[in-house]
Design a protein around this nucleic acid. Sequence first.
DNA 1: GTCTATAGAGGGATAGAC
DNA 2: GTCTATCCCTCTATAGAC
Lengths: 197, 197
Amino acid sequence: MEDKSISTEEKIKAAARTIFTKKGYAATKTRDIAEEAGMNLALLNYYFRSKEKLFEIIMAENLKKLFGILAPILNDQHKTLDEKLSMIATNYIDMLFVNPDLPLFVLSELRQNPGWLRETLHVDNVVIASHFMVQLREKKKDINPIHFLISFLGMLIFPFAARPILQGTAAITDDQYNQLMEERKKLIPMWMKCMLE
Amino acid sequence: MEDKSISTEEKIKAAARTIFTKKGYAATKTRDIAEEAGMNLALLNYYFRSKEKLFEIIMAENLKKLFGILAPILNDQHKTLDEKLSMIATNYIDMLFVNPDLPLFVLSELRQNPGWLRETLHVDNVVIASHFMVQLREKKKDINPIHFLISFLGMLIFPFAARPILQGTAAITDDQYNQLMEERKKLIPMWMKCMLE
DNA sequence: GTCTATAGAGGGATAGAC
DNA sequence: GTCTATCCCTCTATAGAC
């Protein structure tokens, strides 16, 4: 009995995750979520009270997914800068293969409501004041280390956010696209090292 | 008399540009556009027939703005690779200062409806088959030149798309942010050269 | 051309049966 | 817990006066 209820709740959450993340809050209809979950609209309100409450749950999950990979690696005191660059590139690209809609979703929704960051996660200390930033400043004293963080994340994330444009304009097959992203796991850390020389 | 009608039409378009670009199609209400334009909702339909028609106009404008800077520089047969990298970085960052919401808008809406690209612009030949790409391949024969294009655009665009996160997490003032972006006009071409060595 | 008023559809939420 | 039926508000679009 408990099993069944958890399963239903989980089905709705999974459907919500898919649709919210793909289309954003405003473009998502609760009816679509219910249909995707294979059940009735009323159950959504029964389990989650409202569209907004459900969205908040998905948003928190997605923020965690996006920053959760980053934080522990950035703050590892026992890894070199090079090791961190490689690990993040690999882990992030692998994560984006599985969750390609994540970056655009978070960037878009966060623009509408920047309060989200402070409320759910404490990204401040975890990213900006990280050991990684210290290492960057040590290595290249005359350039604000935030420049490197921005460029690093930009190179990692942009091809996923821009995938439709990329595949729409350059005639790239899915296989070719995957191979390109695979190559970037090595290329981006290599480029970063070059930028930091 | 004609002047007045043109002016009204232009006011609506300006308001639509602002709100659509900031919030996206789904989250935008025609009432908000009318209010922003300082006039009645009915005029929107009088001049543009529907929300969707108005949106199509704004979308086409924005696509042109985003690719219009790129295409002529990429295809200039008489500029060196280095010159192109500098010019694009400078022009793009200046354009993004004025239109900070443009990238996220285009990326988001294009994900929902990738058909837009083919229908409005012929970005294919203009970007992918550009002289710039030939120059990249010449310079670095063993790496797919699309990697450099992606990284270049990623480094340029990402800090604008992620501005709320950046300013929300790192305590960066508006002045500091502007200065960082100003610095990137020189840094990014420099890094690109390093990557292409 | 510009306004007010309103039609008409869609979407979030709930009542109530089972 | 799950379903059907329905309420009610919001939003797009239009009718019609001026």
